[in-house]
Design a protein around this nucleic acid. Structure first.
Length: 274
DNA sequence: CGTAGACCCTGCGCGC
DNA sequence: TGCGCGCAGGGTCTAC
């Protein structure tokens, strides 16, 4: 579910609810996420700490607490992190709950349990194994066509794989890789060795633009994505190719195709993507 | 070294 | 109506 735009939307909608609040209590209802949640550490080190800021790195949401602790969330495929003004009744697959000092609650739901919740020392965050191998942020200053061209040098394989490699650029998942390639007019199977400098520039710009557009539209809700308030996004109506096999390409009218690459669906237009 | 495939898990929609 | 199948937005590990 959540790629960079969706995580960024969750961050922006949660920040005004959480920043400045103190966490009073932690409830671990299910510890079997992608990595086991440490009940003892969560109970010992999270309560009574104030939330100082919300940040994002790649598809990770960073809830920075006072005194050198950061609560790290990854939403996997089906995770939802939502805030409610009152505790209420736990929903199905609600694995974690954090009570705040104003009587509200932050909850993590994740039916598939591919998500992650970690408590790390803020001062050592970027050296942690989850973060140290990550490439540049696509909306940051060091990501451009030159960087993509350098990353492609000496590599083989289809360009879609390069876009989804987090050591090259973070935050781009299956939806936005397909959409960026369509905007750039590049066939997803094209070898990275057969792309010249101008196309790398166009591709980098397309990645940036599609992510920014999606953020502006509140993210993509296909089935179950919700922001921090439980609301859906709107970008799904603007998707040009993803999930649109058999429909006409909005740019050239040719019929959109679906193929499988590395076990995952790729959607593209055979007319305007070469 | 880089790349491909299996795997983790639940829910949904479809065809029969 | 019920069942089995394929499919789903991610990341990591192993085998080649």
């Amino acid at each position: 579910m959540p790629e960079l735009p969706e995580v960024e939307i969750v961050r922006r909608t949660l920040a005004p609810r959480l920043v400045g609040r103190r966490i009073t209590r932690v409830e671990v209802r299910e510890r079997r996420l992608r990595e086991p949640v440490s009940r003892a550490r969560f109970a010992r080190e999270i309560p009574d700490r104030r939330i100082e800021r919300l940040d994002r790195r790649a598809k990770y949401l960073l809830v920075e607490l006072e005194r050198d602790r950061t609560l790290v969330f990854h939403l996997g495929m089906s995770g939802q992190l939502t805030w409610t003004p009152r505790p209420g009744t736990p929903e199905a697959h609600e694995h974690l709950a954090f009570d705040l000092d104003d009587g509200s609650r932050l909850r993590l739901r994740d039916p598939r349990r591919f998500g992650l919740a970690l408590l790390l020392a803020t001062s050592r965050l970027l050296a942690d194994r989850h973060f140290r191998h990550l490439g540049p942020e696509p909306l940051g200053p060091s990501f451009d066509g030159t960087w993509l061209a350098e990353a492609a040098a000496g590599r083989r394989g289809p360009v879609k794989g390069l876009l989804m490699d987090a050591t090259v650029v973070v935050g781009v998942g299956n939806i936005y890789a397909c959409e960026a390639l369509h905007r750039a007019g590049i066939h997803p199977r094209r070898s990275v060795a057969r792309i010249a400098a101008p196309r790398w520039q166009r591709l980098a710009a397309a990645v940036r633009e599609v992510l920014e557009d999606a953020i502006r539209q509140g993210g993509t809700t296909l089935n179950d994505f919700a922001d921090g308030n439980g609301d859906s996004g709107y970008f799904q109506v603007a998707l040009a190719v993803y999930g649109r096999e058999g429909e006409p390409c909005p740019r050239c009218g040719r019929t959109i195709r679906r193929i499988v690459q590395s076990g995952r669906s790729t959607f593209y237009c055979p007319g305007c993507q070469t």
